[in-house]
């Protein structure tokens, strides 16, 4: 017991009982043993001969990447533009679909608990599948190209935006909603006046954040044929043209940097 009494009768306090303290030591010991065991299993399954010359292989790869073949950049503007369009149009489509879903999923705005469950299923389904996998499925259905990429990005974004937005809706202050209801306003009017102004900053922030993520995700969609710069990346790697791969890396890096900057500025301006 944390509080006990000395023989003199003064109370003593400790954070844990002796038993809890020993259990905690035991827990740490078990954790450490498990870590060492895993370490050993991984080590046994690794071919150390390959790892030993990793440094040489790495420097070899870098030497093939350098100097980048800058003239190759001429052929990358179009795929890069596709990538940006996939990300932007996909995000717009995604948030357009996520917006109503979020209102149906939030406990305080849903018309019925069954509708809420359906909306949550949509959100979970969208979130549980990575956009690369959505793209693979859609390339099979729609054929390769930008359209499959846009829809893949949109489908993945529904879950992300929907989840964050419905959480924001559930966290609004209830009293303005009460006040608007008390004027005799209809359901949609209560949403428009009581709920929407309160979640607007969150909605804008979430959308820009998702757009920023989608720029990064859309750069790899080409690996499965869904358009954009990933297509070029795949081709360059397959033909071992490492000095072209490095140009693509630099371009992706620059784009992501710019998109992060824009999204940070926009979020700063809104909030």
């Amino acid at each position: 017991m944390p509080v006990s009494t000395t023989t003199q009768g003064t109370p003593i306090w400790r954070l844990r009982t002796t038993r809890a303290q020993w259990l905690q030591y035991l827990g740490w010991l078990t954790g450490a043993c498990l870590f060492l065991l895993c370490w050993k299993v991984i080590s046994d399954n690794t071919m150390w001969v390959f790892v030993e010359d990793a440094g040489r292989q790495g420097s070899d790869l870098i030497s093939r990447m350098l100097p980048p073949e800058w003239s190759y950049a001429q052929r990358l503007w179009k795929p890069m533009w596709d990538t940006l369009n996939i990300a932007t149009l996909g995000t717009l489509l995604g948030i357009a679909m996520a917006f109503p879903v979020a209102f149906l999923a939030a406990r305080n705005t849903t018309p019925h608990p069954l509708v809420r469950s359906a909306a949550l299923v949509i959100i979970v389904a969208s979130r549980s599948i990575n956009s690369l996998i959505w793209a693979m499925l859609l390339v099979t259905i729609l054929g390769p190209g930008v359209l499959a990429g846009i829809i893949a990005i949109a489908l993945r974004s529904i879950g992300f935006v929907g989840k964050l937005l419905y959480e924001a809706i559930e966290e609004i202050h209830p009293t303005p909603v009460e006040a608007i209801s008390a004027t005799g306003a209809g359901r949609l009017q209560v949403m428009n006046y009581g709920v929407l102004p309160q979640v607007m900053p969150a909605f804008a922030g979430i959308s820009v954040y998702r757009w920023d993520i989608n720029i990064r995700e859309s750069t790899v969609l080409g690996l499965v044929g869904a358009g954009g710069i990933g297509l070029q990346l795949n081709a360059a790697i397959n033909s071992l043209a490492w000095n072209q791969v490095s140009v693509i890396f630099v371009m992706i890096f620059a784009t992501v940097l710019v998109s992060e900057w824009i999204s940070a500025r926009v979020r700063h301006a809104i909030i």
């Binding site: 303005p176 009460e178 608007i180 008390a182 004027t183 005799g184 102004p197 309160q198 607007m200």
Partner: peptide, 18 residues
């Protein structure tokens, strides 16, 4: 019926961003 009964609140219950 609610139109005929107006309510005034403790924390004002205004919509801040409007």
């Amino acid at each position: 019926a609610r139109r005929a009964m107006a309510m005034i609140f403790q924390e004002y219950a205004l919509v801040d961003r409007l």
